[in-house]
């Protein structure tokens, strides 16, 4: 089942998406007014349909997941090929095609990854960026011991211990 989060859309847009997706199998849509409350659990979803303003405000989350994201623009003048984008006057067939492409993206490319917490992913990104444990602690405002604990958990879940191995994993999974 493809779980899609619709974020920041108007009621009418939400209804439209629900109707369009009804014709597609194995899709489960959930609606959110904003992104802040969703962020801690956002990785539970396989794909995101998000208003352009929220996409820009939370680009650190959406850009690494660009293959899983549809951005809704209000203006006809934008032209964006990646991430996937739709406009208010886009016809129903095109939207269906885009939703179907999300479905294919999941079935073809998604790899069952370890269930990493939001904090573990943040630590992983910083490790991949070449930061030391001390630097990560300062950046995330946590203690060095907490960073070490997160790194141990990452190694336990992923079976990868070296910093360059963790960087490779982050790269392979769109985290950097």
């Amino acid at each position: 089942m493809l779980k899609i989060a619709l974020i920041g859309l108007s009621s009418l847009e939400n209804i439209a998406f629900r109707e369009i997706s009804a014709g597609l199998t194995s899709m489960n849509l959930e609606f959110f007014a904003g992104f802040e409350n969703l962020r801690p659990i956002a990785d539970k979803y396989n794909a995101y349909i998000v208003k352009s303003e929220l996409f820009l405000l939370n680009s650190d989350f959406f850009l690494p997941r660009k293959n899983q994201t549809i951005v809704i623009f209000n203006s006809l003048s934008h032209n964006c090929s990646t991430p996937l984008s739709i406009f208010h006057n886009t016809d129903q067939a095109e939207i269906e095609s885009m939703l179907a492409s999300l479905e294919n993206t999941k079935s073809d490319k998604e790899v069952p990854t370890a269930d990493l917490s939001v904090r573990e992913k943040e630590v992983l990104k910083e490790v991949a960026g070449g930061l030391t444990n001390k630097e990560i602690a300062e950046k995330l405002n946590i203690s060095v011991n907490t960073v070490i604990t997160h790194r141990k958990n990452l190694s336990g879940k992923l079976g990868i211990r070296s910093a360059s191995g963790l960087s490779l994993y982050a790269l392979m999974n769109g985290l950097i």
């Binding site: 790899v111 992923l158 079976g159 990868i160 070296s162 191995g165 490779l168 999974n173």
Partner: peptide
Amino acid sequence: NVEEKLNDLASIFVVHLK
């Protein structure tokens, strides 16, 4: 370090290859 990276390389192939 080389031994650690070889273990990582094996894990990447066995667990994370896509």
